[in-house]
Design a binder for these strands. Structure first.
Lengths: 213, 213
DNA sequence: TATTTTACTGACCGAACGGTTAGTCGCGGG
DNA sequence: CCCGCGACTAACCGTTCGGTCAGTAAAATA
């Protein structure tokens, strides 16, 4: 007679130890990358034994994948927050998404950096598809927003919607990536706050830099 | 009487072994990152013994730093190529630099990725300043180009020159970073060639996406 | 209460790590 | 001719790596 396995934990509850492992592993992986972090580092940081990590997760790769999954979900959820106060103006909706996207990136730097690491790894297959899916979903959302504005004749029809979406996302990601380096650069006045950056970029992209005589 | 050290190698010539070590180390570091590459990997790839690497370089960090220096120099030189055929039109000069910058990034993916890795490492001090200097130099060059165009009243004076420079560089770097992922995305028509991308981005930034009624 | 299951640990494993040592080989200068 | 020196290597060092295992304490199940 087959035993029915009744797990003590209700599906999505984890023991205190497992949670601290996930938390500290994310922190370490996000700041140093996969290969620079050892199981011992994580165990010490989380205050558990090394063997305990292998009790909860089958391998280092498995742990990383779990951490990455959580990060991807958090990252996706952050973009779905406050979906009700969407303005009617299609342009304002793009602007809304744009600044919200940057805020989401900055609010969860560990998740963002984790996905960034994974997109950077070329050889490994590990969780690259996961990271790419996050990227692809965000991308297609912006594309559809742009297309909608084009159908309302608010955005030039000759503008490539996918290119504009790419530039918007890229502007945010590049800001996130270089936010530390940016402080060392002279003559940078646009990065005092994310909001300032968002509005400035959006305005520049909207009107263009070329002087119309 | 102090012996004058006459190195067999004239100052900047290196032995065949040392060259292959540098070459293969760059290849491996660029694709996998610092921590994922072992001295053994490099030795095997370069066809030399592990000890030989420590004969030419004092440590793994030292080797990496040397590789990074070379990459930074190559990256800087690539931007100085063909400086004579600069057009008179300030706007065309920006466009020239913009497309040339992207071509330089793509033509030397190993150098580019190496610098990218180093900018990403937050904790390590290793060669981060080097990578930042490359970034800063490129940045200030674009800023001055923009300012020049503004003084000729070709670019709107109310546009933040540093922001525009940041967006231009960011557009190129982001394209480089995501060029592999880009192929998997649907509805992406702007990435058939770097030239097409360059002109499309420049055009969009120049005129803006907003429809003027 | 008796039995299973889970959370957790210290001791341990072979492999691989960065790095060292002792020594071989070939070549150029005195 | 030989001697010193740079290029180069096999073998080795202590340490740390990812991962295993036997066992314990406590909690859930029966």
């Amino acid at each position: 007679m087959p035993k029915i396995k009744l797990n003590t934990n209700a599906d999505n509850t984890l023991s205190k130890g497992a949670l601290s492992i996930l938390r500290e592993a994310e922190e370490l992986f996000a700041t140093k990358g996969f290969d620079a972090v050892s199981i011992n580092d994580i165990a010490k940081q989380a205050g558990v034994s090394k063997a305990n990590i292998f009790h909860h997760f089958q391998s280092k790769d498995g742990l990383f994948l779990e951490v990455l999954k959580i990060a991807c979900n958090r990252s996706a959820q952050a973009l779905d927050a406050a979906p009700e106060l969407l303005p009617d103006d299609p342009l304002a909706r793009i602007n809304n998404f744009f600044s919200g996207h940057l805020q989401a990136l900055l609010a969860q730097p560990r998740s963002t950096r984790l996905i960034q690491w994974e997109l950077m790894m070329n050889g490994e297959q590990r969780g690259k598809r996961l990271a790419e899916e996050v990227f692809a979903e965000t991308f297609s959302r912006v594309v559809s927003l742009v297309r909608e504005a084009q159908s309302h004749e608010i955005i030039k029809s000759e503008v490539d919607a996918s290119l504009l979406a790419f530039l918007l996302i890229g502007a945010n990601v590049f800001f996130f990536e270089t936010r530390d380096v940016l402080k060392h650069l002279p003559d940078v006045n646009f990065a005092k706050s994310p909001e300032q950056y968002s509005t400035a970029v959006f305005d520049l992209l909207a009107r263009g830099f070329e002087k119309v005589s």
